[in-house]
Design a protein around this nucleic acid. Structure first.
Length: 555
RNA sequence: GCUUCCUUCGUCUAGUGGCCUAGGACGCUGGCCUCUCACGCCGGAAACAUGGGUUCGAGUCCCGUAGGAAGUACCA
């Protein structure tokens, strides 16, 4: 069979030869050890938290090795394309400080020397390489239609045979030149399949950067490398693109592990040097008693917009993702409390082989720590930015009371032991809302967090009433506290903790209990920062009027 | 069904044949500190899926079983 002739017949006008392309996209001149990798999303517009995770890792590995990080758009499945899909993905990633060295910008324009970076525009390359394979006798045109494929699959299933296009089911594998010509004349469309020379019982061994040695069954299928629309499926695009973009580490989800054998066959047929792989386990989620991949349909937290809406700072999400990526991150953090998390160096072989469960409580803990390191101005700015998108009325209050709000956020901040009371901005209102007159409006006893099991409301009312009479703008914390202690003793509360602990029966409670009652009376809440500072900020008039209101509602 | 991967406290994990009486973090919990709430500090409960090997010795190596996950497309 004259394969050259066949190739020319199939692809009469192809722009490049393999040599042209090798020359056009020469090996990169990078320092040894530099990693060239890429993120290759479909432009569906949906940014999955797992994608951010993978990207964060890929970006880190590329940048730390003085390598290159590429954004490639995989849009060969034209049916899944979405308006603004690329833009949404880029913007989403930018928020997490993920920037590409080469790729496509928000408008869809290329930058970098190894483009174009949009697969649907790389048709010439795929066709050239497909033609090359045909001319080498390594690939052939397949004229089978979908019905044939379905029928064969049904037969194979009924016979309990392996499903696929192989052996006697590879109808077009041995077509003669004349038969191909005849089909072409009839206007029959064709796809290109790779001639496979292996079988399922042949095992292959490969080294994965995360998994270590992987033993897999070889591919036995004559896989499609060019679809009827002459666009490649993932497998062929992956080989051509990653080779000609001179990628040297493929980081991708572990759902690709079963198709590694197929990919390796394609690389070999093409005469490309094999590339290193790192297969990342997906982030999982608990459903009932079993784990499953976090799903874009069922789980709101799969979408990055979830973190935006809840008001998690990007630093928090990144910090958390790094803890999932490499467990030694937390040790690193302990030793480098002041560095930003992007200074950490991710190592592929320290990544987990099994999928990590997304742990929201852990994220919250991480986030509380992160926010506790922010200064008041930053808290204000970020909280306001969040509120302007998701809580307009709160945003207005923050803007109308800017200086006051910053004072509120300053309480016990910037100290050696900063407060850790918020994990995300949507908690700010409930944590600090009572500072603002607009947001403090208790209507009944239920709006107060009194511990009525410990103390009855008559006791509380007596104390509140008494305090209204004695409260003043105290000059300092000590004076303020002394007053509370003295007041407590009048009602049988201890003013000395040790004395109380030594003999709790002798007292009704201790000064802490008194402070707690007043705290609730003034703020409505049981957990707040230093009450003295709160009262100072609120001012005497407001404190007194709140105490009176509390007294009223305690009746 | 077939193929492949994975399996250590509730969760994330450390662990590369003796340092493991299995370490850390989150969560839960007891206490201490304290000028109130927190923070912080100290402590506690809590795990090697299972059965066989190999070995003087196994969480670690091998085989089987179970469970979970993924793939099985002219999707990616």
């Amino acid at each position: 069979m004259d394969y050259k002739k066949l190739a020319d017949l199939l692809f009469p006008d192809v722009k490049y030869t393999k040599e042209d392309l090798e020359k056009k996209y020469p090996p990169r001149n990078l320092k040894p050890g530099a990693i060239v990798t890429r993120f290759a999303p479909s432009p569906t517009g949906f940014l999955h938290i797992g994608s951010v995770f993978t990207c964060l890792v890929a970006n880190n590995i590329a940048k730390k090795s003085d390598g290159v990080f590429i954004l490639r758009i995989e849009d060969t499945d034209q049916t899944r394309k979405v308006e603004n899909g690329v833009k949404n993905i880029i913007q989403g990633l930018n928020r997490y400080d993920i920037k590409f060295d080469e790729g496509v910008d928000e408008e869809g324009n290329d930058y970098g020397d190894y483009g174009t970076y949009t697969q649907s525009q790389r048709k010439d390359i795929y066709m050239a390489m497909a033609k090359y394979l045909v001319s080498e006798g390594k690939a052939y045109p397949c004229f089978c239609d979908d019905e044939t494929a379905e029928r064969d699959k049904a037969i194979q299933e009924a016979n309990k045979e392996l499903t696929g296009y192989y052996g006697s089911y590879a109808h077009c594998r041995d077509l003669t030149l004349e038969e191909v010509e005849a089909n072409l004349k009839q206007g029959k469309k064709f796809a290109i399949r790779l001639k496979c020379n292996s079988s399922a019982d042949h095992k292959i061994v490969m080294e994965d950067a995360i998994r270590g040695t992987l033993k897999l069954s070889d591919n036995f299928n004559d896989v499609v490398i060019l679809k009827r629309d002459f666009l490649p499926p993932y497998n062929f695009a992956h080989a051509c693109d990653d080779h000609f973009m001179r990628v040297n580490l493929v980081l991708r989800g572990d759902e690709y592990i079963p198709s590694i054998a197929e990919h390796l066959q394609i690389f070999d047929a093409l005469g490309f040097e094999r590339i290193k792989y790192a297969h990342i386990a997906p982030i999982q989620k608990m459903e009932g008693a079993s784990k499953r991949k976090i799903s874009k349909r069922k789980d709101p937290e799969a979408n990055v917009t979830f973190y935006l809406e809840e008001g998690y700072p990007v630093e928090s999400v990144k910090e958390y993702l790094y803890t999932v990526a490499n467990s030694n991150f937390e040790d690193w953090r302990k030793n480098n409390p002041d560095l930003t998390c992007d200074n950490f160096v991710v190592t592929a072989d320290k990544m987990s082989k099994s999928g990590a469960l997304f742990d929201l409580p852990k994220l919250n803990d991480v986030s509380k720590n992160i926010i506790s390191t922010f200064d008041a101005q930053k808290v204000y700015d970020l909280c306001l930015a969040w509120a302007e998108l998701y809580d307009k009325s709160f945003a207005k209050i923050l803007k109308d009371n800017k200086d006051y709000a910053i004072k509120v956020f300053s309480i016990e901040r910037g100290t050696a032991k900063p407060r850790k009371d918020i994990a995300k901005w949507n908690e700010t209102k409930s944590a600090f809302g009572y500072f603002f007159k607009e947001l403090f409006a208790p209507k009944s006893l239920e709006d107060y967090a009194y511990n009525l099991e410990k103390f009855d409301k008559e006791t509380i009312k007596k104390i509140v009433d008494k305090y209204v009479g004695v409260y003043d703008n105290e000059p300092d914390n000590q004076t303020w506290f002394a007053k509370i202690k003295t007041l407590g003793t009048e009602f049988g509360f201890a003013d000395d903790m040790k004395a109380y602990k030594a003999n709790p029966e002798a007292y009704k409670g201790h000064y802490g209990d008194v402070a707690s009652m007043l705290r609730v009376a003034i703020t409505g809440k049981a957990n707040t920062p230093d009450l003295y500072q709160i009262c100072t900020l609120l001012g005497k008039d407001e404190v007194v009027s709140r105490l009176k209101l509390a007294s009223e509602l305690l009746k």
